[in-house]
């Protein structure tokens, strides 16, 4: 029982640590959107092109955050470590 409790506690801490990876995409996407806004300000006629490129870039930048989310979800809902006891 004690081992199980330790694993669950460590997993909970691990979930929190994994979600720190949300920092990176946040900063990256914010920078990308800021640059896109500046680009639209300079060239309002290219808005459509800039917007679709920005959304695509944001999606790719988001990937690392999504990976961390998947790790967190696995640890929370289908913890593989508990079965290793």
């Amino acid at each position: 029982m004690m081992e199980r409790a330790i694993i669950l506690a460590a997993s909970a801490i691990g979930v929190g640590l994994a979600m720190i990876a949300g920092l990176g995409p946040g900063i990256g996407e914010g920078y990308a959107v800021g640059q896109a806004c500046a680009a639209i300000g300079r060239q309002p006629e290219a808005q459509g092109k800039i917007q679709s490129t920005m959304i695509l870039g944001c999606a790719i930048a988001e990937t690392t955050g999504i990976y961390s989310l998947v790790v967190a979800l696995i640890l929370l809902f289908m913890n593989p470590l508990v079965n290793m006891l």
Binding site: A59, E62, T63, I66, Y67, L69, V70, L73
Partner: peptide, 16 residues
């Protein structure tokens, strides 16, 4: 894998 995980992650996190 990243295509699938991105789509899954966004929708599932919204549901959660």
């Amino acid at each position: 894998l990243s295509l699938a995980l991105r789509h899954f992650g966004n929708i599932a996190s919204g549901a959660i």
